[in-house]
Amino acid sequence: MYIHQKATKPFSRRQITYYRDLLWELVSREMKLLYKRSLLGVFWTLLNPLLQLLVFSTVFRLVLKTGQSIPNYLAYAFSGLLIWGWTQTSLFQATGLITGNRPLIRQPSFPTAILPIVTVTTGMIHFLLAFPALLIIMVIDKVQIGWPIVFLPLLWVLQFIFTLSFAYPLAALNVTFRDTQHTLGVILQLMFYMLPIFYAVGDGTIPPALAQLYHWNPLVVLLDAYRYVLIGGDRPSLIAMFGLSAVCLAILPIGYQIFKRQGAKFVEEV
């Protein structure tokens, strides 16, 4: 049994300040590195989805002729891209966390569990930085922005928890299997096409039998909720919200436990 009695109590003000500061420093490290490595810096995080929007909307709308029935198609597609982009990049980066941060993990009393939080937070900051661009596209696309937009923070929190729940086990898995990141890249790409980002579930792109299954995917529910709030000008359905919250609260402890159980092996295996 290992007991570490810190000089300060677990939930003392200093300890909370400390975790906040640690999160701040690690997130700002990520941001600074991004700024320093490329001339355009954070601007890339905006440019990238815009270019993607250009490519995919051309392919889907003009070549595949899907999504013709979707109103406010640009805003619809762009919001989907940004939302999925946050989860996708966070999960992809989370796999390299433990293997890539060996010196931090070897630091005594370093809370390793903060690393996935750092990654998801960094992803969220990029997401929020790109949000004004979405608003601009929405205005161009003549979307009526209504009061349900106040639900946005709730959706951010839910997506944060959802992403974090998967970031934990993925980070741990990469310690045992070093090709997790490659494998995950393929899976994430598959997810990208399986999610209604450039098409809608009900627009006839996918067979109706499959459409039923789509609604069991929490990410589809999340995307729908975002679009209700942003484009539909309506509050998301209560059932969907409760369902999502329940899923998030159920999977976060599971993901965290997997991470913790693997945790003792990190240093031995990294």
Partner: peptide
């Protein structure tokens, strides 16, 4: 002792904040 790996047997108790002089500057 640093709490990086857990013991399989016995007890370790550390009281107070820990510091380490190892892998200096590796982070």
């Amino acid at each position: 002792l640093s709490g990086i790996v857990g013991p399989d047997e016995g007890n370790v108790e550390i009281i107070g904040r820990m510091g380490a002089l190892l892998d200096l500057g590796a982070g």
